[in-house]
């Protein structure tokens, strides 16, 4: 599962292309949070996740829980890259009967372990998966991706407190700290003040990284997996750019949940090196 930094960057680039294609085709969906999370997902899936794409229900697989389930295009893109679903399946995003439902759904899509869409639920679910692994005496892990806006849900903190209480060293959170939520910047909607201090105060191991720098991402994943951080729950706070990789989407709250038009789509394909300017 070893991959060079440039190989990982190329995987992430290909996923970005698919993300933009999905939301453009559907003329709906959530590009912003898909683009901010994708470097993290690419590195996690391509180098760390213990999974079998040809046996998606393998009982000892690591679990990945996309709690911010609206950012599903990012997850579908990496699942296609890993071979859980086909690239053809990506065309079913938001289409009646498609495996790629608007929000990731374990009933519909191979490789999806959690039916998301309501924020603030994934961490509790991840705690359940981690607890089951412990009861099974399995070394499988539960990785949970949460959004920064999502962190405003009180239930996130119920789970955070409980996971530390139960010393769930096999529970690992990645926070996509892109500073934007649905309506606006987090700073306008609900300030969260010192986020690392909050998680530390809840008893978690905390590390901050640049979520678009592959070297830092690999260090961050090493941190999550290091033996000293497997005594209790750990969180990687990844500073990211919402819409990262597409100039006009970057740091633009209106691309939280809006699709590019044809012209913008073309522009994105140029920026991603898919077509010549």
């Amino acid at each position: 599962m070893s991959k060079s930094i440039s190989e990982l960057e190329e995987i992430a680039r290909k996923c970005r292309v698919e993300i933009v294609k999905m939301v453009h085709r559907a003329q709906a969906g959530h590009p912003g949070g898909s683009l901010s999370e994708i470097d993290l997902l690419a590195a996690l899936y391509a180098t760390r996740m213990r999974i079998r794409p040809d046996d998606p229900k393998w009982s000892d697989r690591d679990r990945f829980i996309l709690s911010k389930g609206h950012a599903s295009p990012g997850m579908y893109a990496i699942l296609a890259e890993m071979g859980f679903i086909s690239h053809e399946d990506l065309k079913s995003y938001r289409v009646l009967g498609g495996v790629c439902q608007g929000h990731v759904d374990m009933k519909w899509c191979p490789g999806v372990d959690f039916s998301a869409g309501s924020l603030g639920m994934g961490l509790s679910f991840g705690m359940g998966c981690a607890t089951a692994a412990r009861l099974d005496k399995s070394d499988r892990r539960a990785f949970v991706m949460i959004g920064d806006g999502e962190m405003q849900e009180g239930s996130v903190w119920e789970a955070a407190m409980a996971a530390a209480h139960h010393e769930l060293g096999n529970l690992k959170v990645i926070l996509d700290r892109n500073r934007i939520q649905n309506d606006d910047f987090c700073e306008e909607q609900m300030r969260m003040f010192d986020i690392p201090a909050k998680w530390k105060a809840f008893g978690w191991n905390v590390k901050e990284i640049d979520g678009h720098n592959m070297n830092e991402i690999m260090e961050g994943l090493d941190f999550l997996e290091s033996p000293e951080n497997c005594q209790g729950p750990s969180i990687l706070i990844a500073h990211t750019i919402k819409g990262g990789g597409i100039s006009y989407m970057e740091n633009n709250p209106s691309f939280h949940g809006a699709a590019p038009n044809d012209e913008q789509f073309h522009q994105a394909m140029i920026e991603l090196g898919e077509v010549e300017a």
Binding site: L119, G120, G149, E150, Q152, E153, G154, Q181, N182, D183, E188, Q189, M190
Partner: peptide, 26 residues
């Protein structure tokens, strides 16, 4: 609760920010 754009309370928020209470996603 971070869905004013969608429920359409955003117009009130723009016109009367001091009488609009953002509760975040909560």
């Amino acid at each position: 609760a971070d869905l004013g754009k969608s429920t359409k309370s955003l117009h009130f928020r723009k016109a009367y920010p001091h009488r609009t209470i953002s509760c975040g996603i909560g």
